[in-house]
Amino acid sequence: TTIEWNGTKITVDNPQKAKELAKKIAKKLGLTVKVHGNTITIE
């Protein structure tokens, strides 16, 4: 699972952990999480 935001890509083996990490990042930055299959985008 890949997390993408602002040109940065982070690959996380565990999809559940990836989703939790994305939510934490999005919350800190005041952004939203969008899931597209194996890609999680923070916008």
Rank of each mutant, 00 (worst) to 15 (best):
N6V: 08
K27W: 06
T2M: 09
K23N: 13
I3F: 05
E4H: 13
L21N: 00
I10N: 01
D13I: 12
Q16T: 11
K9P: 03
T1R: 01
W5N: 04
K17V: 11
T41C: 08
G7A: 06
V35P: 02
E43V: 15
E20K: 13
A26W: 04
K9R: 12
G37C: 06
K24L: 14
G30W: 02
I3K: 05
L29I: 04
L29T: 12
T2R: 03
H36N: 14
Q16R: 15
I40C: 03
N38P: 03
T8K: 15
W5A: 05
K27F: 07
A22E: 00
P15Y: 14
E20S: 10
K19F: 15
Q16M: 11
V35R: 04
I40L: 08
G37D: 05
V12M: 13
E4S: 10
H36G: 03
K34L: 08
V35S: 04
K34P: 00
K27N: 11
T41E: 05
N14Q: 03
I42E: 00
L31V: 09
G30T: 02
V12Y: 06
T39Y: 10
K19S: 07
E20F: 10
T11C: 11
G37P: 02
G7F: 09
G30L: 02
K34S: 11
V35M: 09
I25E: 00
V35Y: 12
T8F: 15
I10H: 02
I10F: 10
D13P: 09
E43K: 09
I42S: 00
E20P: 01
W5D: 03
N38L: 07
L21Y: 08
L31I: 07
K27H: 12
V35F: 12
I3T: 06
A22N: 00
K27I: 10
K34M: 08
K19M: 15
V35A: 05
K23P: 01
E4C: 08
G37Y: 04
T11M: 11
V35L: 08
K28P: 02
K24Q: 10
E4R: 08
E20D: 10
K28V: 10
N38K: 04
L29F: 15
L29C: 13
T41L: 13
G7I: 10
P15R: 10
N14I: 05
K9M: 10
G30Y: 02
G37F: 04
I40A: 01
E43M: 15
H36L: 10
K27Y: 07
N6M: 11
N6D: 07
I42M: 07
K23T: 11
L29M: 06
I40Q: 00
Q16G: 07
L29G: 03
T41F: 15
G37V: 03
K9W: 09
I10E: 01
T11D: 04
W5K: 05
I42L: 15
I40W: 02
V33M: 11
K17I: 11
K19G: 04
T1F: 13
N38S: 10
P15N: 07
K23Y: 15
K27T: 09
N14C: 08
A26L: 04
